[in-house]
Amino acid sequence: MKVSNETKIGALTAVAIVVLILGYNFLRGNDILSREQRFYAIYGHVDGLNISKPVLVNGFQIGRVSDMKLQPSGSTVVEFKINKDYLIPENSVARLMSTDLLGNKAIEFELGNSKVNAESQDTLRSNVERSLAESVQPVQKKAEAIITKMDSLLTSVNTILNPSFQKNIDRSFKSVASTLETIDRTTKKVDGLVGSESGRIGKILANFESISSNLRNNNQHISHIVANFDQLSNQVAKTNIQETLTNANKAMTDLQAAINKINNGTGSIGLLLNDDKLYNNLNNSAANLDKLMIDLKANPKRYVSFSIFGGKKNN
């Protein structure tokens, strides 16, 4: 039986259509010929994740992303188709992870330790891993800071390589070398001085040692002197200096009051010093006494007379 060309073309077209359908579904994550179970996970953002992206366990592919639906809340429900040959514990986590620096994503199952396996149509716990770009961002900032410091360092190196700066460096080194030579000469002079004066230095040290020995030997005596000073200071502290000052002030006040009375002519002393009549009477009495003494010397018989027989002659 001869098959016509039309039949061959029709059969070939049908086979091509079936292969196209199977290939399209495979690319979308739908493997019609395989036994599959479906799981779901909810993510806040799914940038970089597309349908047919692989589902991995420790890097081994066990399924594909089959569908993605945006919810009114803004989250996205992602459907996974997993081969039924693989058992998934119910506490497993579907982690959205980055696969390269370009932002491509995949799903990696972190299998839990539960003895109960998840069933088809179950919703697994989800987790979003930081992208490689986000992870590299702190390193990028550090690299930028290092590059900035390197640029500053290179600028400094260029400055150092400047001929004028090199001349300044050479002059600085020469100055440092001259300073070191001066210090070396000074050290030699000091060594010579110490060598020549070692005898005097030894005597000075001996004197210091003698002084320290005397202080050590007279330590008890010095302690006794300090104790005496302490006792004297305690006695002075105990003396009632305030009362003495108060009594002195009172005495000065009484003396001032007495002087004021004398100046005012109050009392005997005040009258004696301030009364002119008493002065005049005393002056007159002195003058009369002086006259009496003169007359007594001139005429003693007028005032005194003696008689051998005890008789008395009247003038």
Rank of each mutant, 00 (worst) to 15 (best):
208 F>G: 12
220 Q>L: 13
220 Q>M: 06
245 L>K: 06
245 L>Q: 02
186 T>S: 14
212 S>I: 12
209 E>I: 10
198 S>M: 01
239 T>C: 10
234 N>T: 10
219 N>R: 12
218 N>Y: 08
192 G>C: 06
200 R>M: 14
193 L>Y: 11
202 G>F: 03
203 K>S: 15
201 I>G: 05
240 N>G: 00
189 K>H: 10
215 L>D: 00
217 N>L: 11
230 D>I: 00
214 N>A: 07
224 H>I: 14
189 K>T: 14
246 T>R: 05
227 A>M: 00
196 S>C: 04
193 L>R: 00
241 I>F: 15
189 K>A: 08
209 E>M: 02
198 S>E: 01
225 I>V: 11
219 N>K: 14
229 F>S: 01
193 L>S: 05
223 S>K: 02
217 N>K: 08
190 V>K: 03
229 F>T: 01
226 V>G: 00
245 L>Y: 04
202 G>H: 07
243 E>R: 12
222 I>P: 09
239 T>E: 09
185 R>M: 14
237 A>N: 10
212 S>R: 07
215 L>T: 05
234 N>V: 06
228 N>V: 09
233 S>I: 10
199 G>R: 03
194 V>K: 03
235 Q>F: 11
247 N>H: 12
228 N>F: 01
186 T>E: 06
210 S>E: 00
205 L>I: 03
226 V>L: 04
203 K>N: 11
193 L>K: 03
214 N>Q: 09
229 F>I: 05
227 A>N: 06
200 R>T: 15
195 G>H: 13
225 I>C: 00
225 I>S: 00
191 D>K: 06
186 T>I: 06
198 S>K: 05
198 S>I: 05
238 K>D: 11
240 N>L: 01
239 T>I: 04
221 H>M: 12
187 T>P: 07
232 L>K: 09
214 N>T: 06
214 N>F: 10
233 S>F: 14
196 S>M: 03
187 T>K: 02
187 T>C: 02
